[in-house]
Design a protein around this nucleic acid. Structure first.
Length: 659
RNA sequence: GCACCCGUAGCUCAACUGGAUAGAGCAUCGGUCUUCGGAACCGAGGGUUAGGGGUUCGAAUCCCUUCGGGUGUACCA
C-alpha cells in the first residue's frame, strides 16, 4: 500500500461531493507529505481553496472533512491547524504493517507495478559516431538511462533507442580527410586515434577558411557599431526625457553588441592564428581551399550510394562503434535498439512525399517547408539543393516508431538548446496524424566550467568523455589508497581491489553529480566536488551502504536468518519512527521522478534516507542490544541497505560491501 | 528586432509546481570520539528569494515592469 495514494483515495468521495469533477485532481494533489515533521506525516491543504468556493470558513470545512473521511484505521492523529490545514499522523501500527510488508518483499520492497503500464520510448545519448563522446553526452546518457530504469521498475514497457549520428557531414569530413591526408600506417595501427585526428584536422581547416572569409565583414560590422556608439555618445537629448531614455537604452545595447562582436573577432583571429602558426597545417590549409564544399560532396556521394564511400563508411562505423561501446561498458549503459540516422536514410523521400500529398509541406525559397502556427520560421524538410535534414530524419523516426511500436509516450533526452526544433517536430507529428502519443522533450542544461562558461579544456576544445572518466577514476583511486592506508588496523585492500573500488566510486560520482541536479538548469562541473567524500555525493550514499554491511559483518549476522525471522519493528527512539517513514516514502520519490522525468528527486530522497540512517546509526546501537530490539534494528539496517541499493541501481549506480 | 529560459546563503544547489518559520551540502567557527569502519554525528553564524508593483486567506513559485545573464532565431545537428 502506498500511504499517499491511500489517503487520496480516502478523501475522494468527500471531495467529490464538494467540488466539480474537473477540480478533483487538483484538490487531491493538495494532499501531500507534510513539509515539516511537526505538522505530522501528511497534510491535506484542500480546505482553503474549497472553503472559498463553497462559501464556508476553511477551518469549519476542514473539520467537516475530517468528520466525513474515514482515517481512524490509518491515522493516530488528525488535526486542523492554521487557516485550515489538515495534519495527519499515521499510526505506528500502520507504519509497522507497511514496513513489515516492504521488508518481506525482496524483489520490489513492497512497491507495486503500475496497473496501467504504458509503452514508452526513450531516445537518449545519441552520439555522433564520427566524433569522440564529449562531456555533454554524460547528461543525456545518465538521465536517459536512469529514467528508463525507474520507468521499468514501476512496470512500464520501456524501449530505449540510441539515435546515432552516423550519416551526416561528419562522415563526409572523415571521408575527405582519409582520402586526402591520412597516414595509412597510423590508421592500420590505431584506426580510432587516426580517425579522430583526421576529424580534428578537417574541422580545423574548415574553421580556418570560414574564419578567413568572415573576418573582413566582421571587422566592418564592428567599425559600424563603433561609429554608431560614437554618434549616440555625441547626441545631447536636452530636455526630451523620452529621447534620453531611448538613447540610454540604445547606447547600452550597442555597447554589449560591440563587446560580443569583439569577442567573435578575437575567436576568428585565434582560429586563423592556430593554423597559420604551424607551417605544416598552414600548408595543408593552402592546398585544400575548397575543403568545405568537397566535404559536402563526399557526404552527398555517400548518400547517393557511391561504393567506395559506402565501404569506407562501414569501416569507419565499425571502429567508431567500438570506441563508443567501450565508454558505454564503463558507464554500464545498454540500449534495446541502436537505430541511427543511416537506418532511416531510405525512408526520407517517402516521408517527404507523404507530407507533400497531405498538403502540409510547401515550397518556399527553393526549400520544402512545413509552416506552423506558433512559429515564424518553418520546419525545413528538404533543402533547396535537394538534401534532407535532421528534421526529416526525426520525422521518419517518428513514423517508424509508430508503425513498429505504437508508443504511448516518446521521450527525447536532449539539450535544451534544441527546444524549438522539438516544438516544431511535435507539432508536425500531430498535424501528420500521430495525435495519440505524448511527446516530451526532456531537456537539460549545459555543463559549465568554473568560469561560468561551457566546460572546455584549457586549449578551448570540448572535453572528451573518456578522459573525464579516467580522471574521475584516478582521483577516486588516490582517495581510496590514502584512506585505506590510514585505516586503524592497517590497509585492507590490495592494488587490484583498490582499483575496482575506485572504478565504482569514480564513475558513480560522475553520474551522481549530474543526476542529483535539477536537469533543467546548467550545472557547474568540478572534479573536486564530484569525488568529494562528504555531502550529497554518490560516495556518501555508498558509504552508508557499506557501513550497514560493516554491522552485519561484525555481528556475523546471517541475512537469510534475519529475513526469515522477522519481528515487528520497534520505535523506541524518535529516529526509528523517522527512518520508518522515510523508508516507506521510496515509492513516492519514484512517482515524483516519473511525473516530471526528474531523477534528481530520487537522488535527493536517497541522500535524505542516508542522512536519516546515519542519525539512527549514531543514536541506536544495534549489536549491543539484544532480543527483539536487536532484531528490529537489524531489520531497519537491512531494509535501509536494500532501499539504498535499489534506489542507486535505478540511478545506474552500484554499491560496494566494503570501501 | 522577436521568442524562450534563468537570477535563492560567500560557493554549488533544493524547495513535492500556490502552503505554515525558504532548506541541504561545501567553506568558516565550535563540539562529539579508548567507534557497530570518523568517508560519521551534533551545534552556530550566514537570506528583503535581483529591484519595484499587482493577483489572494497565503507568492521564490502566477501576472506586469525595471535591471542583470543565457539560449535560439530559413535550408548544421
Amino acid at each position: 500500500m502506498n500511504l499517499l495514494s491511500e489517503l487520496k483515495h480516502r478523501f475522494t468521495p468527500a471531495l467529490s461531493e464538494l467540488a466539480n469533477p474537473q477540480d478533483l485532481p487538483a484538490l487531491l494533489a493538495m494532499i501531500r507529505p507534510a513539509q515539516d515533521a511537526k505538522f505530522g506525516d501528511y497534510q491535506a491543504n484542500c480546505a482553503m481553496p474549497l472553503g472559498k468556493r463553497v462559501g464556508q470558513p476553511p477551518r469549519e470545512l476542514a473539520n467537516q472533512l475530517i468528520e466525513t473521511v474515514t482515517l481512524d484505521d490509518l491515522a493516530e492523529k488528525v488535526e486542523v491547524a492554521g487557516p485550515g490545514f489538515i495534519n495527519i499522523t499515521i499510526s505506528d501500527q500502520i507504519l509497522n504493517q507497511e514496513l513489515t510488508q516492504a521488508f518481506a518483499d525482496l524483489q520490489r520492497l513492497g512497491i507495486e507495478a503500475s496497473p496501467l503500464p504504458k509503452k514508452i520510448i526513450i531516445d537518449f545519448s545519441s552520439p555522433n559516431v564520427a566524433k569522440p563522446l564529449h562531456v555533454g553526452h554524460i547528461r543525456s546518457t545518465a538521465i536517459g538511462d536512469s529514467l528508463s530504469r525507474v520507468l521499468r521498475f514501476l512496470g512500464h514497457d520501456v524501449i530505449t533507442d540510441n539515435h546515432l549520428g552516423d550519416w551526416g557531414t561528419q562522415f563526409g569530413m572523415i571521408l575527405y580527410g582519409y582520402k586526402n591526408f591520412s597516414d595509412a600506417q597510423a590508421y592500420a595501427e590505431n584506426p580510432i586515434a587516426e580517425l579522430s585526428s583526421i576529424y580534428r584536422t578537417v574541422r580545423h581547416l574548415i574553421d580556418y577558411h570560414n574564419s578567413v572569409a568572415k573576418l573582413p565583414d566582421a571587422k566592418a560590422l564592428l567599425e559600424k557599431q563603433e561609429q554608431l556608439f560614437a554618434e549616440f555618445s555625441a547626441t545631447d537629448p536636452g530636455e526630451d526625457k523620452a529621447l534620453a531614455k531611448k538613447l540610454k537604452k540604445d547606447t547600452k545595447s550597442i555597447k554589449s553588441k560591440i563587446a560580443a562582436q569583439k569577442e567573435m573577432i578575437q575567436s576568428l583571429v585565434q582560429t586563423i592564428e592556430t593554423v597559420e602558426s604551424d607551417p605544416a597545417t598552414r600548408d595543408l590549409a593552402n592546398r585544400h581551399p575548397q575543403i568545405a564544399q568537397n566535404v559536402l560532396a563526399e557526404t552527398a556521394q555517400l548518400h547517393a550510394g557511391d561504393i567506395e564511400n559506402k565501404e569506407l563508411w562501414s569501416d569507419f562505423m565499425e571502429h567508431g562503434m567500438q570506441e563508443i561501446q567501450r565508454v558505454y561498458d564503463r558507464l554500464d549503459i545498454k540500449f534495446d535498439f541502436v537505430l541511427g540516422e543511416s537506418f532511416y536514410h531510405e525512408q526520407l523521400s517517402t516521408v517527404v512525399d507523404e507530407l507533400i500529398s497531405k498538403e502540409m509541406a510547401t515550397e518556399s525559397e527553393g526549400a520544402l517547408c512545413v509552416f506552423l502556427e506558433n512559429h515564424k520560421a518553418p520546419m525545413i524538410i528538404r533543402k533547396s539543393d535537394g538534401a534532407f535534414l535532421y528534421a526529416t530524419t526525426d520525422l521518419a523516426t517518428i513514423k517508424y516508431r509508430m508503425s513498429e511500436w505504437k508508443p504511448d509516450v516518446i521521450l527525447y533526452v536532449v539539450d535544451f538548446r534544441q527546444g524549438e526544433h522539438f516544438e516544431k517536430l511535435f507539432d508536425v507529428a500531430r498535424l501528420w496524424g500521430y495525435t495519440d502519443t505524448e511527446y516530451q522533450h526532456v531537456k537539460f542544461g549545459t555543463v559549465m566550467g568554473d568560469d561560468g562558461k561551457p566546460f572546455k579544456t584549457r586549449a578551448g576544445d570540448t572535453v572528451g568523455l573518456e578522459p573525464l572518466l579516467d580522471e574521475a577514476e584516478n582521483r577516486a583511486l588516490a582517495l581510496v589508497t590514502q584512506l585505506d592506508e590510514g585505516k586503524p588496523g592497517g590497509p585492507e585492500f590490495d592494488e587490484e581491489q583498490r582499483k575496482a573500488i575506485a572504478q565504482m566510486v569514480g564513475i558513480s560520482a560522475l553520474k551522481y553529480a549530474d543526476l542529483s541536479q535539477n536537469r533543467t538548469s546548467d550545472y557547474t562541473f568540478s572534479y573536486d566536488k564530484m569525488v568529494e567524500l562528504k555531502g550529497n555525493t554518490a560516495t556518501y550514499l555508498q558509504y552508508g551502504y557499506a557501513r550497514v554491511n560493516g554491522i552485519f559483518r561484525k555481528g556475523e549476522v546471517d541475512i537469510d536468518d534475519l529475513r526469515e525471522n522477522a519481528v515487528p519493528f520497534e520505535f523506541t527512539e524518535d529516529i526509528e519512527r523517522e527512518l520508518a517513514l522515510k523508508l516507506l516514502r521510496f515509492e513516492e520519490a519514484l512517482q515524483d521522478v516519473i511525473s516530471d522525468y526528474r531523477p534528481n528527486l530520487l537522488a535527493n530522497y536517497l541522500f535524505e534516507l542516508t542522512q536519516t540512517f546515519f542519525v539512527f546509526f549514531e543514536k541506536c546501537p544495534v549489536l549491543k542490544t539484544a532480543g527483539s530490539l536487536r532484531q528490529s534494528r537489524l531489520q531497519f539496517c537491512d531494509l535501509t541497505a536494500r532501499t539504498l541499493q535499489k534506489g542507486l541501481s535505478l540511478l545506474g549506480i552500484g554499491v560496494l560491501q566494503k570501501m
